[in-house]
Structures are given as structure tokens and as C-alpha cells.
Amino acid sequence: MKLDATDRALIAETQAGLPLVPEPFAEIGARLGLPEGEVIDRLAAMRAAGIIRRIAAAPNHYALGLTFNGMTVWDVDDGRAEALGAQVGALDFVSHCYLRPPALPDWPYNLFAMVHGTSREEVEEKRAKIRAMLGEACRADDMLLSRRILKKTGLRLKRKE
């Protein structure tokens, strides 16, 4: 999908969030000089193209008590990483799961899976479940707990025509 200037204006106008009013798309349209129907149609087209993943709330994990956030990392056999990664990514307690190239010799791990919990024990339990799933295909693993958030911003799209 090719984004035009109007799509980009729409992204710039909504990237900080939607107005919390009964008719949010009419409100966005009023700011940009677009009819409500066009705002809805353009957002629907971007959603169908995968440019918008969903229109939803981003919860603050910390405020909801999920203060332990572990990045589990795994050195998985290259031949099996794709299939096993899909299985790990499908676990309901894994929030993000990616294959990434390792950086040898400092960093042998190729599979990353984020787990969250209210205690260290809870995230260790989840990590153990992933370890059991990977079995002998995994040669080494580690978990990096987050100590603090140093910066967090949303998407910052520059306006350009």
C-alpha cells in the first residue's frame, strides 16, 4: 500500500492517541478538513494492509502489577529455530517473540521471548516452560530482567509531503 499525503497527515494526527470523545473519527476529520467517512475508510485500508495492527489501549505493565519483565534468550539449532520459535511465540504468556542474528562470540542467542510476571518466581516458572519446550535443540540460554525504563515513546513520524 502506498501512503499519500492525506494518509500521512492522518497518521501524524493519531499517533499520540485518538480523542476520547463519542465520535473520534469525526473529530479527527474536523481537525484535518476531511469527512468522517473518509477518515474511517482510510484507517480501514491501513488496517487491512497491516500498517495499523489494531486500534487499542497500550496498558502500562508496571501499573498493572507486572513489575518483573524478563527478556529470555536462547541459542537454538538453526535448522529448528523457525518451527520452535513459532511454538514459543504461541504461548499465551509470551508477549513478543523474535528470531535475530547472534553476535558471536559475545552473544550466541538467536531466539528472544519476552515474559512478564508479578514476581521473580513467576517469570522463572514461565522461563522453565519455554526451556522444556525447546529441549535439546537449545544449547544455552539466559534471562535479562529489566531494571528500569530509561526512555519510552511512541512512533514519531515526521510530517512530510
Binding site: Q15, L43, I52, R53, A63
Partner: peptide, 11 residues
């Protein structure tokens, strides 16, 4: 701050 934002998630 219980939700950090409400709106489209762009890829």
C-alpha cells in the same frame, strides 16, 4: 498512566 495511550498501533 494505567494505559499509556489509546489509539492506532502502527507498524
Amino acid at each position: 498512566g494505567i494505559i499509556t495511550r489509546f489509539g492506532p498501533f502502527f507498524d
